[in-house]
Simulated assay, not measured.
Amino acid sequence: MAERPTTNWRHGIAEEAADLAAGTLDPECACTAGLFPEELLTATDTVFDTFEEELARLGDAGDEQVFAVVERVVLALNAVDEVHNESAFDTDEREELCDYIDQSLTEHGVDVVALTARHGLGRYQLTDKWRKW
């Protein structure tokens, strides 16, 4: 199963906290918890909860239904980013979010390469039409 980016981010926060507690990390170098405040993590997980529920109902949906699910998850992530001054997701996070969407679709039987090709897009352009982050 595709791992949510928030799982990785929470792991990084815990790892940093452990390093701080062990004295192996200078507190001035600790930034992970600041990059991923709990409100951001919770909001992003809420978006993914809805996305996963929609994926479970896709079945043999056509391209338009699949694109509608992608549009909704991307717009919801745009809203999360907006609440966080449009700085919630940097380059690495953007890639993780897109990979998660792609992997989740694939796990639910969507051939992302074929889907995007049918619409004149490259595989990694799946979210571009709606994505602001």
Score class of each variant (00 low, 15 high):
Glu82Ile: 02
Pro27Asp: 13
Thr50Asn: 04
Glu28Asn: 07
Ala88Lys: 03
Val47Glu: 01
Asn8His: 13
Glu16Cys: 09
Val73Met: 03
Thr106Ile: 10
Asn8Phe: 06
Asn78Cys: 06
Leu40Val: 05
Glu15Phe: 14
Thr127Gln: 08
Trp133Ser: 10
Asn8Gly: 09
Gly122Gln: 12
Thr42Gly: 01
His108Asp: 08
Leu105Lys: 02
Thr42Met: 03
Leu40Asp: 05
Leu77Pro: 00
Cys98Tyr: 12
Leu121Met: 13
Asp90Asn: 10
Ala18Trp: 11
Phe89Lys: 05
Glu38Ile: 01
His119Tyr: 15
Leu35Ala: 08
Leu35Gly: 14
Arg10Val: 01
Gln65Cys: 03
Gly23Val: 13
Ala33Tyr: 09
Asp102His: 14
Asn85Lys: 13
Phe36Asp: 01
His108Leu: 02
Phe48Ala: 00
Phe89Thr: 02
Arg4Trp: 09
Asp63Gln: 05
Arg4Pro: 02
Ser87Pro: 01
Tyr100Trp: 06
Thr6Leu: 03
Lys132Asn: 05
Arg72Tyr: 04
Ala2His: 07
Leu20Val: 09
Glu28Met: 01
Thr127His: 07
Leu25Met: 13
Ile13Leu: 05
Cys31Ile: 05
Asp49Gln: 08
Ala18Phe: 10
Phe48Gly: 00
Arg57Asn: 13
Glu86Ser: 11
Leu41Phe: 09
Met1Trp: 06
Asp102Met: 04
Leu58Asn: 10
Leu75Cys: 06
Ala21Asp: 14
Glu54Ile: 02
Glu93Leu: 00
His11Arg: 15
Thr44Gln: 04
Lys129Ala: 14
Trp133Phe: 15
Ala76Leu: 01
Leu20Gly: 05
Met1Arg: 08
Trp9Ser: 06
Val73Asn: 04
Glu86Asp: 11
His108Trp: 10
Asp102Gln: 09
Thr6Lys: 04
Arg118Cys: 07
Glu107Thr: 06
Asp45Gln: 05
Asp45Tyr: 08
Phe36Val: 02
Pro37Glu: 11
Thr106Phe: 08
Cys31Met: 06
Gly109Ile: 02
Ala79Phe: 07
Arg4Tyr: 13
Asn8Gln: 11
Ser104Ile: 00
Pro37Trp: 15
Ala88Val: 01
Ala114Cys: 07
Asn78Gln: 10
Arg4Asp: 06
Ala43Thr: 02
Val47Thr: 01
Glu86Arg: 15
Leu20Thr: 13
Thr6Gly: 03
Phe48Ser: 00
Thr127Cys: 06
Phe67Ser: 03
Trp9Leu: 11
Asp111Gln: 12
Pro5Val: 05
Thr50Met: 01
Ala21Tyr: 14
Gly62Gln: 12
Leu35Ser: 12
Asp90Pro: 01
Glu71Tyr: 10
Lys129Gln: 13
Val80Gln: 12
Arg123Ser: 11
Leu40Gln: 10
Val47Ala: 00
Glu96Thr: 00
Ser87Gln: 13
Asp63Ile: 03
Glu86Ala: 07
Gly12Ile: 07
Val74Asn: 02
Asp19Glu: 15
Lys129Val: 11
Thr7Met: 05
Ile13Lys: 10
Ala17Glu: 14
His108Glu: 05
Leu97Asn: 05
Val66Trp: 01
Ala79Met: 06
Asp45Cys: 03
